[in-house]
């Protein structure tokens, strides 16, 4: 009976949400691979928080709540925040982590100021901050799925076009620079792609949890392979899996928010990968350690015997 009730709930709305979450997971898993490999896992956190003032300003300027306009505002603010972070690191002795922390929190604070300003001017039906912070996966419509698919697809196509350049940037920046590749332009291109992925996810999982969608699938994928292309495909798969899994679990009981459930699903995939992945995984390491120990003992015994003779 329990199974049947879940099956009957796999209705049209749920399917749309699941498809949206899966697409989102795939796009952020793919692009997050770069962030994780470049040790910029927390850049996503910064971009998603920094997007808030952009949304508020877009609303104040146009007075419209059209998703596309708000998304554009979010993208510009997120992009600007990243540019600030990069400039602070380049021009002062303040390190990456502090620059990230400052921009993330103060941009968000400024967004909060604008948000209260909007509320005060009496737009009562303005979407609450909760939506921005945690997302509302349940409100994903067919048109949103289309937007995610098209914009995410464009981002991935751009990534594929610059595949060789970005790969070089990630693994050996110095070498790339010495070959004459425009490092800063590539850096900004990669960041812009990340911004697209994050802004797309704001509606579904929200600002606070979007960073996890970039990091978790990529970290899980990293454990299974040493090849960039395989890692990226795996990350996309894990991201999509977490998206669908989270959507179905959260719909199976009342009052379980979708965004956090998706994040927890992704975290479970990471835990599973860290323990079980062949070669790198903890379990594998443990077995190898014991095998080595046994072999050494046998070798030691043989040496001992040969000395006695």
């Amino acid at each position: 009976m329990e199974n049947l009730s879940i099956l009957t709930r796999l209705d049209y709305t749920l399917m749309i949400v699941a498809i949206g979450a899966a697409l989102l997971g795939a796009v952020s898993g793919t692009l997050g691979t770069y962030a994780v490999l470049r040790r910029q896992s927390l850049l996503g956190d910064a971009i998603s928080h920094a997007a808030l003032p952009g949304i508020a300003i877009a609303f104040l300027l146009t007075g419209s709540k059209t998703p596309l306009i708000l998304v554009l505002g979010a993208a510009i603010a997120g992009w600007l925040g990243t540019l600030f972070i990069l400039s602070i690191v380049r021009l002062t002795r303040i390190k990456y982590d502090s620059a990230l922390g400052i921009i993330l929190s103060t941009f968000f604070g400024f967004g909060l100021v604008l948000h209260t300003l909007i509320q005060r001017t009496g737009n009562a039906n303005q979407a609450g901050l909760d939506t921005f912070l945690f997302g509302q996966a349940a409100t994903i419509l067919e048109s949103d799925v289309l937007t995610i698919g098209i914009l995410g697809g464009i981002a991935i196509v751009i990534m594929l076009v610059f595949w060789k350049e970005l790969k070089l940037l990630v693994f050996d920046e110095g070498f790339a620079a010495s070959l004459g590749f425009p490092i800063r332009a590539l850096d900004i291109l990669l960041t812009s792609l990340l911004v697209i992925a994050i802004v797309l996810g704001l509606q579904a999982v929200g600002a606070v949890l979007m960073s996890a969608m970039l990091v978790a699938p990529a970290v899980a994928a990293r454990q299974w392979t040493d090849k960039l292309s395989v890692m990226m495909l795996l990350a996309a798969g894990f991201g999509a899996l977490a998206g669908v899994g989270g959507t179905i679990i959260s719909s199976s009981a009342s009052r379980i928010p979708t965004g956090p459930t998706i994040v927890l699903c992704a975290t479970v995939v990471v835990g599973f990968s860290i323990v079980l992945a062949p070669n790198r995984g903890l379990l594998w390491n443990r077995l190898r350690y014991q095998r080595n120990k046994r072999n050494l003992k046998m070798l030691g015994g043989q040496l001992f015997q040969s000395e006695e003779q």
């Binding site: 927390l42 949890l209 960073s211 996890a212 970039l214 970290v219 454990q223 459930t261 990471v270 860290i274």
Partner: peptide, 18 residues
Amino acid sequence: LVKEDAAIGLTFPALFSI
């Protein structure tokens, strides 16, 4: 298996989600 930044990026969203 996980670098510091990714470790932070994994831990807090999970706890926050809970």
